[in-house]
Computed example of a mutant assay.
Amino acid sequence: MPIDATLPYDPDNIFAKILRGEIPSKTVYEDEHALAFHDVNPQAPQHILVIPKGAYVSWDDFSAHAPDAEIAGFVRAVGTVARNAGMVAEGYRLLANIGQQSGQEVPHLHVHIFAGKPLGPMLVR
Rank of each mutant, 00 (worst) to 15 (best):
F62G: 10
I98A: 05
D31M: 06
L123K: 07
A96Q: 14
E105N: 01
L95Y: 04
T6N: 13
G116F: 08
T80D: 13
E90T: 05
Q104V: 12
A96M: 15
A55P: 03
L19P: 02
D61K: 09
L49P: 00
I113Q: 10
V81H: 11
G120A: 01
H110M: 03
G91M: 06
K26F: 01
S58Q: 06
G21P: 01
Q46E: 11
Y92G: 12
Q46M: 08
L49V: 04
K17I: 00
H108G: 09
A5Q: 11
D61W: 12
A44T: 07
P107E: 08
L109E: 15
L19Q: 09
E90D: 15
F74N: 07
I14K: 01
W59Y: 12
A34H: 04
I18D: 05
V81A: 10
Q43A: 11
S25T: 05
L94F: 14
T80A: 14
R125W: 03
D12E: 15
D31F: 04
R20G: 00
E90W: 00
Q101L: 11
V78D: 07
E30T: 11
I18G: 03
L109C: 12
L7Y: 06
P118S: 12
D61C: 11
I71G: 05
R20S: 01
F74E: 06
T27R: 14
A96W: 04
L95A: 15
V50M: 06
G120Q: 03
I71S: 03
G79W: 07
P8Q: 10
H33F: 15
Y9H: 15
E90A: 15
G120I: 05
P8V: 11
Q104G: 10
L35S: 02
A82K: 01
H33R: 02
D39N: 15
Y92L: 09
R76G: 00
P121T: 11
Y29P: 06
M122C: 08
I48T: 14
D4N: 15
V124F: 01
F15R: 04
E70C: 03
R20K: 13
P24I: 01
G120Y: 05
A16C: 00
D4H: 11
E90Q: 14
S58A: 10
I113G: 08
A96T: 14
D4L: 08
V75Y: 09
P2W: 10
Y9F: 15
S25M: 02
E22L: 08
A44N: 09
E32G: 11
A16P: 00
F114W: 14
I18W: 04
Q100Y: 09
M122P: 00
L7P: 00
F15Y: 14
A115Q: 10
K26V: 11
P52Q: 10
G91R: 12
I51A: 10
A69R: 09
R93C: 13
R125F: 07
P2E: 14
R93E: 13
Q100T: 15
Q43E: 12
V88P: 09
P42Q: 02
P2I: 13
G21Q: 02
V57W: 02
A72W: 01
